[in-house]
Write a protein that binds this DNA or RNA. Structure first.
Lengths: 177, 177
DNA sequence: CGATTATTGTTGGACATAAAACTGTCTTTG
DNA sequence: CAAAGACAGTTTTATGTCCAACAATAATCG
Protein backbone atom coordinates (compact mmCIF):
# COMPACT_ATOMS: atom_id res chain seq x y z
CA UNK A 1 0.00 0.00 0.00
CA UNK A 2 2.79 2.34 0.40
CA UNK A 3 1.09 5.55 0.57
CA UNK A 4 2.85 8.16 2.51
CA UNK A 5 1.20 10.74 4.54
CA UNK A 6 -2.14 11.38 4.88
CA UNK A 7 -4.16 9.98 7.66
CA UNK A 8 -6.83 12.37 8.74
CA UNK A 9 -4.72 13.94 11.37
CA UNK A 10 -6.61 17.13 11.53
CA UNK A 11 -9.93 15.78 10.60
CA UNK A 12 -12.42 16.83 13.14
CA UNK A 13 -15.58 15.05 13.92
CA UNK A 14 -18.50 16.88 12.73
CA UNK A 15 -19.26 18.12 9.37
CA UNK A 16 -17.20 20.22 7.22
CA UNK A 17 -17.90 20.73 3.67
CA UNK A 18 -15.52 21.04 0.87
CA UNK A 19 -17.19 22.78 -1.91
CA UNK A 20 -14.27 23.24 -4.18
CA UNK A 21 -14.47 20.84 -7.09
CA UNK A 22 -10.95 19.68 -6.59
CA UNK A 23 -11.66 19.32 -2.96
CA UNK A 24 -10.24 15.98 -2.13
CA UNK A 25 -7.93 15.92 -5.04
CA UNK A 26 -4.36 15.99 -4.06
CA UNK A 27 -3.01 17.35 -0.83
CA UNK A 28 -6.17 17.82 1.10
CA UNK A 29 -7.02 15.42 3.80
CA UNK A 30 -10.64 14.46 3.79
CA UNK A 31 -12.83 14.69 6.82
CA UNK A 32 -13.90 11.35 8.13
CA UNK A 33 -17.13 12.80 9.39
CA UNK A 34 -19.18 10.56 11.66
CA UNK A 35 -16.70 7.75 11.16
CA UNK A 36 -14.65 9.49 13.82
CA UNK A 37 -16.94 8.06 16.45
CA UNK A 38 -17.00 4.49 15.23
CA UNK A 39 -14.75 2.09 17.05
CA UNK A 40 -14.93 -0.32 14.15
CA UNK A 41 -13.50 2.15 11.69
CA UNK A 42 -10.50 2.97 13.83
CA UNK A 43 -10.00 -0.67 14.58
CA UNK A 44 -9.63 -1.37 10.91
CA UNK A 45 -7.32 1.57 10.31
CA UNK A 46 -5.06 0.65 13.22
CA UNK A 47 -4.96 -3.02 12.35
CA UNK A 48 -4.17 -2.24 8.77
CA UNK A 49 -1.37 0.12 9.71
CA UNK A 50 0.07 -2.41 12.11
CA UNK A 51 -0.11 -5.17 9.54
CA UNK A 52 1.60 -3.09 6.90
CA UNK A 53 4.29 -1.92 9.28
CA UNK A 54 5.07 -5.46 10.31
CA UNK A 55 5.09 -6.64 6.72
CA UNK A 56 7.50 -3.87 5.86
CA UNK A 57 9.76 -4.93 8.68
CA UNK A 58 10.00 -8.56 7.70
CA UNK A 59 9.66 -7.70 4.03
CA UNK A 60 13.04 -9.09 3.17
CA UNK A 61 12.34 -12.60 4.26
CA UNK A 62 9.74 -14.56 2.38
CA UNK A 63 7.67 -14.86 5.47
CA UNK A 64 4.31 -13.27 5.57
CA UNK A 65 3.22 -11.54 8.76
CA UNK A 66 0.60 -14.13 9.50
CA UNK A 67 3.27 -16.77 9.59
CA UNK A 68 4.54 -15.48 12.88
CA UNK A 69 1.34 -16.18 14.76
CA UNK A 70 1.04 -19.63 13.25
CA UNK A 71 4.57 -20.64 14.14
CA UNK A 72 4.25 -19.23 17.63
CA UNK A 73 1.01 -21.06 18.25
CA UNK A 74 2.48 -24.33 17.07
CA UNK A 75 5.58 -23.71 19.13
CA UNK A 76 3.53 -23.30 22.28
CA UNK A 77 0.99 -26.00 21.51
CA UNK A 78 2.98 -28.84 20.06
CA UNK A 79 0.73 -31.51 18.63
CA UNK A 80 -2.07 -29.06 17.99
CA UNK A 81 -4.51 -29.87 15.20
CA UNK A 82 -5.21 -27.61 12.27
CA UNK A 83 -8.73 -26.95 13.45
CA UNK A 84 -7.63 -25.95 16.93
CA UNK A 85 -4.91 -23.82 15.41
CA UNK A 86 -7.41 -22.06 13.20
CA UNK A 87 -9.56 -21.27 16.20
CA UNK A 88 -6.66 -19.89 18.20
CA UNK A 89 -5.49 -17.85 15.26
CA UNK A 90 -8.91 -16.55 14.37
CA UNK A 91 -8.78 -17.70 10.77
CA UNK A 92 -10.85 -20.22 8.92
CA UNK A 93 -9.31 -23.66 8.75
CA UNK A 94 -9.45 -23.58 4.99
CA UNK A 95 -7.31 -20.45 5.02
CA UNK A 96 -4.69 -22.29 6.99
CA UNK A 97 -4.29 -25.13 4.53
CA UNK A 98 -2.17 -23.29 1.96
CA UNK A 99 -0.12 -21.56 4.66
CA UNK A 100 0.68 -24.86 6.33
CA UNK A 101 1.45 -26.46 2.98
CA UNK A 102 4.04 -23.79 2.37
CA UNK A 103 5.55 -24.16 5.82
CA UNK A 104 5.75 -27.90 5.44
CA UNK A 105 7.28 -27.64 1.99
CA UNK A 106 9.94 -25.35 3.41
CA UNK A 107 10.65 -27.80 6.16
CA UNK A 108 9.58 -25.55 9.01
CA UNK A 109 6.78 -27.65 10.40
CA UNK A 110 5.89 -31.30 10.72
CA UNK A 111 2.47 -32.79 10.06
CA UNK A 112 2.19 -36.14 11.71
CA UNK A 113 -0.74 -38.43 11.48
CA UNK A 114 -1.71 -39.91 14.79
CA UNK A 115 -2.37 -43.62 14.97
CA UNK A 116 -5.20 -42.94 17.37
CA UNK A 117 -6.97 -40.60 15.03
CA UNK A 118 -6.08 -40.59 11.42
CA UNK A 119 -8.15 -37.58 10.55
CA UNK A 120 -6.09 -35.02 12.40
CA UNK A 121 -2.58 -33.84 11.89
CA UNK A 122 -0.36 -33.21 14.89
CA UNK A 123 1.59 -30.07 14.09
CA UNK A 124 5.02 -29.29 15.42
CA UNK A 125 8.05 -27.20 14.56
CA UNK A 126 11.17 -28.64 13.06
CA UNK A 127 14.53 -27.36 14.28
CA UNK A 128 14.63 -25.19 11.17
CA UNK A 129 11.18 -23.93 12.11
CA UNK A 130 12.45 -23.03 15.57
CA UNK A 131 15.28 -21.06 14.07
CA UNK A 132 13.07 -19.20 11.65
CA UNK A 133 10.61 -18.44 14.42
CA UNK A 134 13.41 -17.05 16.56
CA UNK A 135 14.33 -14.67 13.77
CA UNK A 136 10.73 -13.66 13.19
CA UNK A 137 10.26 -13.11 16.89
CA UNK A 138 12.98 -10.51 16.91
CA UNK A 139 11.09 -8.60 14.23
CA UNK A 140 7.82 -9.03 16.04
CA UNK A 141 9.29 -7.74 19.24
CA UNK A 142 10.77 -4.72 17.58
CA UNK A 143 7.42 -4.07 15.95
CA UNK A 144 5.56 -4.37 19.19
CA UNK A 145 8.04 -2.15 20.95
CA UNK A 146 7.21 0.60 18.51
CA UNK A 147 3.55 -0.02 19.20
CA UNK A 148 4.30 0.14 22.90
CA UNK A 149 6.01 3.45 22.39
CA UNK A 150 3.00 4.82 20.57
CA UNK A 151 0.50 3.52 23.06
CA UNK A 152 2.46 4.11 26.23
CA UNK A 153 3.38 1.55 28.81
CA UNK A 154 0.62 2.63 31.13
CA UNK A 155 -2.08 2.21 28.53
CA UNK A 156 -0.94 -1.04 27.03
CA UNK A 157 -2.60 -3.48 29.44
CA UNK A 158 -5.82 -1.59 29.23
CA UNK A 159 -5.72 -1.57 25.45
CA UNK A 160 -5.06 -5.27 25.24
CA UNK A 161 -7.81 -5.99 27.71
CA UNK A 162 -10.28 -4.00 25.64
CA UNK A 163 -9.26 -5.61 22.36
CA UNK A 164 -9.51 -8.98 23.92
CA UNK A 165 -12.94 -8.28 25.26
CA UNK A 166 -14.13 -7.11 21.86
CA UNK A 167 -12.91 -10.27 20.17
CA UNK A 168 -14.33 -12.52 22.86
CA UNK A 169 -17.77 -10.99 23.12
CA UNK A 170 -18.38 -10.49 19.44
CA UNK A 171 -17.38 -14.05 18.76
CA UNK A 172 -19.65 -15.25 21.51
CA UNK A 173 -22.53 -13.69 19.65
CA UNK A 174 -21.88 -15.89 16.72
CA UNK A 175 -22.28 -18.96 18.83
CA UNK A 176 -25.43 -17.71 20.41
CA UNK A 177 -27.14 -17.19 17.16
CA UNK B 1 7.09 -8.34 26.22
CA UNK B 2 9.12 -10.35 24.85
CA UNK B 3 10.89 -13.28 25.65
CA UNK B 4 13.45 -13.68 23.04
CA UNK B 5 13.40 -16.96 21.27
CA UNK B 6 11.02 -18.03 23.84
CA UNK B 7 11.55 -21.03 25.91
CA UNK B 8 8.61 -22.97 27.12
CA UNK B 9 6.89 -20.43 29.09
CA UNK B 10 3.23 -20.70 29.50
CA UNK B 11 2.21 -18.26 32.09
CA UNK B 12 1.85 -14.81 30.79
CA UNK B 13 1.05 -11.78 32.81
CA UNK B 14 -2.55 -11.08 32.55
CA UNK B 15 -4.31 -14.12 31.44
CA UNK B 16 -3.59 -16.83 29.09
CA UNK B 17 -6.31 -18.96 27.80
CA UNK B 18 -6.28 -22.27 29.50
CA UNK B 19 -2.94 -23.76 30.23
CA UNK B 20 -3.50 -27.22 29.05
CA UNK B 21 -0.19 -28.98 29.33
CA UNK B 22 0.77 -30.22 25.98
CA UNK B 23 -1.12 -31.40 23.06
CA UNK B 24 -3.60 -28.90 21.94
CA UNK B 25 -5.39 -31.50 19.94
CA UNK B 26 -9.02 -31.27 19.18
CA UNK B 27 -11.37 -29.82 21.70
CA UNK B 28 -8.79 -28.09 23.77
CA UNK B 29 -8.39 -24.39 23.61
CA UNK B 30 -4.84 -23.58 22.75
CA UNK B 31 -2.65 -21.24 24.71
CA UNK B 32 -1.64 -18.20 22.77
CA UNK B 33 1.65 -18.06 24.62
CA UNK B 34 3.68 -14.91 24.09
CA UNK B 35 1.13 -13.64 21.62
CA UNK B 36 -0.81 -12.52 24.66
CA UNK B 37 1.52 -9.56 25.00
CA UNK B 38 1.47 -8.41 21.40
CA UNK B 39 -0.77 -5.51 20.64
CA UNK B 40 -0.71 -6.41 16.97
CA UNK B 41 -2.17 -9.85 17.53
CA UNK B 42 -5.09 -8.59 19.55
CA UNK B 43 -5.64 -5.82 17.08
CA UNK B 44 -6.14 -8.36 14.35
CA UNK B 45 -8.40 -10.56 16.44
CA UNK B 46 -10.59 -7.64 17.49
CA UNK B 47 -10.79 -6.16 14.03
CA UNK B 48 -11.64 -9.50 12.57
CA UNK B 49 -14.41 -10.10 15.09
CA UNK B 50 -15.80 -6.63 14.51
CA UNK B 51 -15.73 -7.08 10.76
CA UNK B 52 -17.50 -10.42 10.94
CA UNK B 53 -20.11 -9.12 13.33
CA UNK B 54 -20.88 -6.18 11.10
CA UNK B 55 -21.05 -8.35 8.02
CA UNK B 56 -23.43 -10.66 9.82
CA UNK B 57 -25.64 -7.74 10.69
CA UNK B 58 -25.96 -6.38 7.19
CA UNK B 59 -25.74 -9.82 5.69
CA UNK B 60 -29.06 -9.64 3.94
CA UNK B 61 -28.30 -6.68 1.79
CA UNK B 62 -25.66 -7.02 -0.85
CA UNK B 63 -23.63 -4.34 0.80
CA UNK B 64 -20.27 -5.25 2.11
CA UNK B 65 -19.12 -3.73 5.39
CA UNK B 66 -16.47 -1.66 3.65
CA UNK B 67 -19.16 0.00 1.58
CA UNK B 68 -20.36 1.89 4.58
CA UNK B 69 -17.10 3.74 5.07
CA UNK B 70 -16.85 4.59 1.39
CA UNK B 71 -20.36 5.97 1.18
CA UNK B 72 -19.92 7.93 4.38
CA UNK B 73 -16.68 9.44 3.22
CA UNK B 74 -18.19 10.48 -0.09
CA UNK B 75 -21.23 11.84 1.68
CA UNK B 76 -19.09 14.07 3.85
CA UNK B 77 -16.58 15.00 1.18
CA UNK B 78 -18.59 15.59 -1.95
CA UNK B 79 -16.39 16.00 -4.96
CA UNK B 80 -13.60 13.96 -3.42
CA UNK B 81 -11.27 12.13 -5.77
CA UNK B 82 -10.67 8.40 -5.72
CA UNK B 83 -7.11 8.85 -4.58
CA UNK B 84 -8.07 11.08 -1.67
CA UNK B 85 -10.83 8.67 -0.80
CA UNK B 86 -8.42 5.79 -0.79
CA UNK B 87 -6.16 7.66 1.61
CA UNK B 88 -8.98 8.53 3.97
CA UNK B 89 -10.26 4.99 3.87
CA UNK B 90 -6.86 3.38 4.27
CA UNK B 91 -7.18 1.21 1.19
CA UNK B 92 -5.19 1.21 -1.98
CA UNK B 93 -6.71 3.14 -4.84
CA UNK B 94 -6.66 0.04 -6.99
CA UNK B 95 -8.79 -1.72 -4.41
CA UNK B 96 -11.32 1.02 -4.63
CA UNK B 97 -11.83 0.74 -8.37
CA UNK B 98 -13.99 -2.38 -8.35
CA UNK B 99 -15.92 -1.20 -5.32
CA UNK B 100 -16.71 2.13 -6.94
CA UNK B 101 -17.60 0.41 -10.19
CA UNK B 102 -20.18 -1.62 -8.35
CA UNK B 103 -21.59 1.40 -6.55
CA UNK B 104 -21.83 3.32 -9.80
CA UNK B 105 -23.45 0.45 -11.59
CA UNK B 106 -26.06 0.26 -8.87
CA UNK B 107 -26.68 3.96 -9.20
CA UNK B 108 -25.53 4.88 -5.70
CA UNK B 109 -22.69 7.20 -6.62
CA UNK B 110 -21.82 9.61 -9.38
CA UNK B 111 -18.43 9.88 -11.02
CA UNK B 112 -18.12 13.20 -12.74
CA UNK B 113 -15.21 14.32 -14.81
CA UNK B 114 -14.20 17.86 -14.11
CA UNK B 115 -13.60 20.15 -17.02
CA UNK B 116 -10.68 21.64 -15.15
CA UNK B 117 -8.94 18.33 -14.62
CA UNK B 118 -9.92 15.41 -16.70
CA UNK B 119 -7.81 12.94 -14.81
CA UNK B 120 -9.81 12.92 -11.62
CA UNK B 121 -13.33 11.89 -10.89
CA UNK B 122 -15.44 13.97 -8.55
CA UNK B 123 -17.41 11.49 -6.47
CA UNK B 124 -20.80 12.15 -4.99
CA UNK B 125 -23.84 10.29 -3.77
CA UNK B 126 -27.02 10.00 -5.76
CA UNK B 127 -30.33 10.29 -3.93
CA UNK B 128 -30.49 6.50 -4.03
CA UNK B 129 -27.03 6.43 -2.51
CA UNK B 130 -28.19 8.69 0.27
CA UNK B 131 -31.07 6.38 1.00
CA UNK B 132 -28.92 3.29 1.04
CA UNK B 133 -26.38 5.02 3.25
CA UNK B 134 -29.11 5.97 5.67
CA UNK B 135 -30.08 2.33 5.96
CA UNK B 136 -26.52 1.20 6.37
CA UNK B 137 -25.94 3.83 8.98
CA UNK B 138 -28.64 2.34 11.14
CA UNK B 139 -26.80 -0.97 11.05
CA UNK B 140 -23.47 0.67 11.69
CA UNK B 141 -24.84 2.52 14.68
CA UNK B 142 -26.33 -0.59 16.13
CA UNK B 143 -23.06 -2.38 15.61
CA UNK B 144 -21.08 0.36 17.24
CA UNK B 145 -23.48 0.52 20.12
CA UNK B 146 -22.73 -3.09 20.85
CA UNK B 147 -19.05 -2.25 20.70
CA UNK B 148 -19.67 0.66 23.04
CA UNK B 149 -21.37 -1.67 25.41
CA UNK B 150 -18.41 -4.01 25.38
CA UNK B 151 -15.85 -1.29 25.76
CA UNK B 152 -17.73 0.92 28.15
CA UNK B 153 -18.61 4.53 27.64
CA UNK B 154 -15.79 5.72 29.82
CA UNK B 155 -13.15 3.85 27.89
CA UNK B 156 -14.36 4.59 24.40
CA UNK B 157 -12.67 7.94 23.83
CA UNK B 158 -9.43 6.60 25.15
CA UNK B 159 -9.63 3.55 22.93
CA UNK B 160 -10.33 5.59 19.84
CA UNK B 161 -7.52 7.96 20.66
CA UNK B 162 -5.09 5.08 20.96
CA UNK B 163 -6.23 3.40 17.77
CA UNK B 164 -5.99 6.66 15.95
CA UNK B 165 -2.52 7.28 17.21
CA UNK B 166 -1.40 3.83 16.11
CA UNK B 167 -2.72 4.36 12.59
CA UNK B 168 -1.26 7.84 12.33
CA UNK B 169 2.20 7.12 13.63
CA UNK B 170 2.75 3.86 11.87
CA UNK B 171 1.72 5.42 8.61
CA UNK B 172 3.99 8.35 9.23
CA UNK B 173 6.87 5.97 9.41
CA UNK B 174 6.27 5.01 5.83
CA UNK B 175 6.70 8.52 4.66
CA UNK B 176 9.57 9.30 6.96
CA UNK B 177 11.72 6.40 6.11
C1' DC C 1 -22.92 -54.88 14.39
C1' DG C 2 -24.78 -51.31 10.70
C1' DA C 3 -26.50 -46.88 9.73
C1' DT C 4 -26.47 -42.29 10.90
C1' DT C 5 -24.10 -38.39 12.51
C1' DA C 6 -19.99 -35.66 13.69
C1' DT C 7 -15.12 -34.41 12.89
C1' DT C 8 -10.91 -33.11 10.24
C1' DG C 9 -8.84 -31.46 6.55
C1' DT C 10 -9.01 -30.18 1.48
C1' DT C 11 -10.98 -28.20 -2.71
C1' DG C 12 -13.54 -24.92 -5.50
C1' DG C 13 -15.91 -20.55 -5.99
C1' DA C 14 -16.31 -15.83 -4.96
C1' DC C 15 -14.35 -11.67 -3.26
C1' DA C 16 -11.17 -8.26 -1.27
C1' DT C 17 -6.81 -6.41 -1.33
C1' DA C 18 -2.08 -4.70 -2.65
C1' DA C 19 1.72 -3.80 -5.77
C1' DA C 20 3.41 -2.83 -10.17
C1' DA C 21 2.82 -1.75 -14.88
C1' DC C 22 0.22 0.97 -17.89
C1' DT C 23 -2.80 4.90 -20.13
C1' DG C 24 -4.22 9.32 -20.32
C1' DT C 25 -3.80 13.92 -18.52
C1' DC C 26 -1.72 17.84 -16.34
C1' DT C 27 2.55 20.51 -14.86
C1' DT C 28 7.13 21.93 -14.92
C1' DT C 29 11.17 23.35 -17.06
C1' DG C 30 14.79 24.15 -20.31
C1' DC D 1 6.63 25.20 -27.12
C1' DA D 2 8.50 20.40 -26.43
C1' DA D 3 10.32 17.05 -23.41
C1' DA D 4 10.34 15.22 -19.00
C1' DG D 5 8.13 14.44 -14.95
C1' DA D 6 4.10 14.07 -11.79
C1' DC D 7 -0.45 12.55 -11.04
C1' DA D 8 -5.32 9.94 -11.41
C1' DG D 9 -7.32 5.98 -12.39
C1' DT D 10 -7.42 1.17 -14.39
C1' DT D 11 -5.64 -3.31 -15.38
C1' DT D 12 -2.93 -7.25 -14.37
C1' DT D 13 -1.07 -10.42 -11.29
C1' DA D 14 -0.68 -12.58 -6.98
C1' DT D 15 -2.34 -13.46 -2.41
C1' DG D 16 -5.35 -14.14 1.36
C1' DT D 17 -9.72 -14.90 3.11
C1' DC D 18 -14.35 -16.99 3.83
C1' DC D 19 -17.94 -20.23 2.91
C1' DA D 20 -19.98 -24.28 1.16
C1' DA D 21 -19.37 -28.78 -0.50
C1' DC D 22 -16.71 -32.78 -0.25
C1' DA D 23 -13.90 -37.28 1.12
C1' DA D 24 -12.03 -39.77 4.73
C1' DT D 25 -12.24 -41.13 9.30
C1' DA D 26 -14.31 -41.57 13.84
C1' DA D 27 -18.12 -41.75 17.17
C1' DT D 28 -22.85 -42.70 18.39
C1' DC D 29 -26.83 -45.30 18.95
C1' DG D 30 -30.67 -48.33 17.39
Amino acid sequence: MARANGLPRRAVPGKSVVAAPSAGAAGDAATIGPLADYIGFHLRMAQNASFQAFARRVGQTELSPGTFAVLTLIRHNPGISQTALSRADGRDKSSLTPALNALERRGLILRQRLPTNRRTYALSLTPAGERVLAGLTRHAEAHDRSLDRIVGAAEKPRLIRLLRRIAAELNDDVGDS
